[in-house]
Nucleic acid binder design. Structure first.
Length: 224
DNA sequence: CCCTGATTCGC
DNA sequence: GCGAATCAGG
């Protein structure tokens, strides 16, 4: 996949946010962790807490032909083919439990660590309900652009299934295995079904009326 | 084992 | 410029 400006921007954002390369790769979709790191370095973003301190000698092990090669069998100690990212991508739906595991290693704390964040397709950051962070996203457009799914979801309404007649409301987050679209019949004249129109288009209340923040499909806590 | 980022280098 | 392969520290 190509490094579009938006993706690069996302990458920078997340990298500086302290997300791991793996997380960034997942969010961006279509790229491996290595790709992210490589790109980050090429961009001049550099090194955050790196596990590896010193790199004394550059080694040049004869790396024969192409990337598809599985070189020197080293006593069968490093079976780590390029299947790495394939395997990760092919993982079963991250159940809450699975996610939890991944999340905790991904520095997603329970209480006082770094904030839990993830990044939407536009590169803006999603935050937890408690997080008051004003900065980057100035004003997400009300117009919703159905994000591009990073994986195809069988028998759910995928990006390719969208049409004028079915609700384009996104379910879950892009990049998640079960990300798909609502798929209900639309409220005629609107891009969403009746229910989701109710979410997307809310009547303007008189000034001073307090109302919970508009539950946009992206930009807030999970909406379903 | 898992994870992490860093580096190399063929493409 | 890209990223797989590989390394090396936790």
């Amino acid at each position: 996949m190509a490094w579009t400006d938006e993706r690069i921007d996302s990458l920078k954002n997340m990298w500086e946010k302290g997300l791991t390369a793996s997380q960034i790769a997942e969010e961006l979709g279509g790229v491996s962790r290595n790709a992210v790191i490589g790109k980050a370095h090429r961009l001049g973003l550099k090194s955050r807490p790196s596990p590896v301190k010193a790199k004394p000698k550059a080694k040049k092990d004869p790396k024969p032909a192409a990337k598809a090669k599985k070189p020197p069998a080293k006593s069968a100690t490093t079976p780590k083919p390029k299947e790495e990212h394939v395997a990760r991508r092919a993982m079963p739906p991250p159940t809450p439990a699975a996610r939890t595991h991944a999340a905790q290693q991904a520095r997603q704390p329970k209480n006082d660590g770094p904030k839990i964040v993830s990044v939407g397709p536009g590169g803006f950051l999603r935050q937890g309900p408690g997080d008051q962070q004003a900065p980057i996203p100035p004003a997400p457009p009300r117009r919703l652009v159905p994000a591009k799914p990073s994986d195809e979801i069988a028998d759910k309404t995928s990006l390719l299934d969208l049409s004028d007649k079915i609700c384009r409301w996104p379910i879950n987050h892009p990049g998640e295995p079960d990300f798909h679209f609502c798929g209900e019949e639309v409220n005629p004249g609107f891009p969403y079904c009746v229910e989701h129109c109710g979410r997307a288009f809310q009547a303007q209340l008189p000034r001073g009326t307090r109302r919970p923040p508009p539950p946009l499909p992206f930009g807030g806590p999970r909406v379903r």
